[in-house]
Amino acid sequence: MATVRVGEVEVGRVQVGGGVQIAYARVGHGPPLVLVHGAGLDGRMWQPQLAGLADEFTVVAWDEPGAGRSSDLPAGFGLVDFAHCLGAVIEALRLGPAHVSGLSWGGTVALELYRHRPELVRTLILADTYAGWKGSLPPEEVAARAEGAKRMLAVPREKFDPTLPGLFAGDPPAAFVPLLGTMAHDVRPETMGAQLLMMAEADQRDLLPAITVPTLLLWGEFDARSPLSVAHAFQDAIAHTELVVLPGAGHVSNLETPERFNRAVREFCRAHA
């Protein structure tokens, strides 16, 4: 494990099985809060949380395998492998049990971590996410999204566009447009295609009633990709849940309404310290 410091942020890498190197950013002191980013993004999407919550928590945002500064996806890598890598990072940094927060695809990874390594999870914070597309969306919607992912992979790299429809309730927040552009430029098509096809096949509904840790559901009021009906299905299936709806926000609610997002996370983690 190698680390450097950039201002207050520790930037490091963890070597896990199969030669996979995983990069992370770590800042702050206090109870550990691990942030798991969405598909087509990387750990930089959590900038407002790294900046806004480090006064009270040890905040860690990884770049998952195949994204950001981490190494490429190995052949045959699956959802369970993402979960095992996330667990390896939590163990290597001696963070567990941690508050684990995932947005969109990142929430699906966080759920899979809980399936295999529940001892590493203090609480779950599931933001605008799914129990896999198959587990949360109508079959016709899953089929349409899977077909869209295949078309995305079929275009030449210079024409590849990682932007998915319905990420924000309105225009992307102006303060984060440069960041979003940089992350989009750095997306690896093979990674994003693999993520989306894994989501199309994933169905974690069997896991939800087995979750015993406190769980926060954070949802944008106008999320078009994972509508509020999905949040209510989580709420019905998981025993110890709290739902917070973020007014005016869409799917990437941590960037669209960061102050409200951070406040909800802070209050929930305090309550379950």
Rank of each mutant, 00 (worst) to 15 (best):
E64S: 00
E190H: 11
G78E: 12
G87E: 08
W219A: 08
A174N: 11
A273R: 13
W105V: 15
G166A: 03
D186A: 14
L93S: 02
G7W: 03
A239R: 13
A273N: 14
D63H: 01
T191M: 03
G78T: 12
L167E: 04
G102D: 07
A75C: 14
Q15K: 11
R260H: 13
G18E: 07
P48R: 01
L246A: 11
F160A: 08
S101G: 14
R145V: 11
L93D: 06
A200L: 00
G66A: 10
L95I: 08
D128K: 01
A75R: 13
A149L: 08
E221P: 06
A75L: 15
G96I: 09
G220V: 08
T163H: 11
D128E: 05
G66R: 05
R151W: 10
G248S: 07
P139A: 02
P178F: 01
R260A: 15
R44H: 12
L103H: 11
G106M: 05
E10Q: 09
H84W: 14
L207N: 00
Y130R: 10
G38D: 13
A273E: 14
D72C: 00
L33W: 06
H99Q: 04
G135W: 08
G52N: 01
A210C: 13
A127F: 07
L137S: 06
L196E: 03
L137I: 02
G18T: 07
L41W: 09
V252D: 03
K150H: 14
P74T: 10
Y114Q: 09
W62N: 06
H240V: 15
K134S: 12
T3Y: 09
A127D: 05
E190A: 14
C85V: 15
